[in-house]
Amino acid sequence: MIAVTGASGQLGRLVIESLLSKTSSENIVAVVRDPNSVPEFVAKGVEIRHADYNDPASLVKALKGIDKLLLISSNAVGQRTPQHKAVIDAAAETGVHLLAYTSLLKADTSPIFLAQEHKETEALIKESGLNYTFLRNGWYTENYTMGIAQALEGKAVYNCAGQGRLTTAPRAEYAEAAAVVLTDETDQHLNQTYELGGDSSYDLSDFASEIGKSAGTDISYVNLKEDDFKSALIEAGLPEGFAGALADAGTGISNGWLVDESKTLSKLIGRDTTPMKQSVLEAFQAL
Results as ranks from 00 to 15, higher is better:
I2P: 08
V4K: 03
G9L: 07
G12E: 05
E17M: 10
S18A: 15
L19M: 07
L20N: 08
L20Q: 08
K22A: 14
S25R: 04
S25D: 01
V29G: 08
P35I: 12
S37M: 08
S37L: 05
P39T: 09
V42Y: 02
V42N: 04
G45I: 03
H50R: 15
A51Q: 02
N54T: 15
N54L: 13
L59E: 03
V60R: 11
K61G: 00
K68P: 00
L70D: 05
L71A: 10
I72Q: 06
S73Y: 00
N75E: 11
N75L: 13
G78W: 03
V87F: 08
I88K: 02
I88T: 06
D89C: 01
D89Q: 06
D89R: 00
A90W: 01
A90I: 03
A91N: 00
E93D: 10
G95D: 05
G95T: 04
V96C: 05
L99S: 02
L99V: 04
A100S: 15
T102D: 03
L104Q: 11
L105P: 09
K106I: 00
T109A: 13
P111L: 10
P111C: 07
F113L: 14
A115F: 06
A115Y: 08
H118W: 10
H118Q: 09
H118D: 11
K119S: 11
E120S: 12
T121A: 07
E122R: 01
E122S: 02
A123R: 12
S128K: 07
N131C: 07
T133N: 07
F134Q: 06
R136H: 12
W139F: 14
T145K: 08
T145P: 07
G147W: 10
A149M: 09
L152K: 09
E153H: 11
G154T: 14
Y158P: 00
N159H: 14
C160F: 04
T167F: 01
R171Y: 04
R171G: 01
A172Y: 11
Y174D: 02
A177M: 06
E185Y: 02
Q188G: 02
Q192D: 00
Y194W: 10
L196S: 03
L196D: 06
S200C: 03
F207D: 02
E210W: 15
I211D: 01
G212W: 07
T217N: 01
Y221N: 11
Y221K: 03
L224N: 11
K225L: 15
D227L: 13
S231V: 05
A232V: 01
A236G: 12
G237R: 13
L238D: 09
L238E: 12
P239S: 11
F242C: 00
L246E: 06
D248M: 01
A249V: 10
G252R: 04
G252T: 08
N255E: 15
G256A: 03
W257H: 10
L258F: 15
L258G: 00
L258Y: 14
V259G: 01
V259P: 00
D260W: 04
D260L: 04
E261R: 12
L265K: 04
L265R: 01
T273H: 08
T273Q: 06
Q278C: 02
Q278G: 13
Q278Y: 08
S279H: 04
A283T: 13
L287D: 05
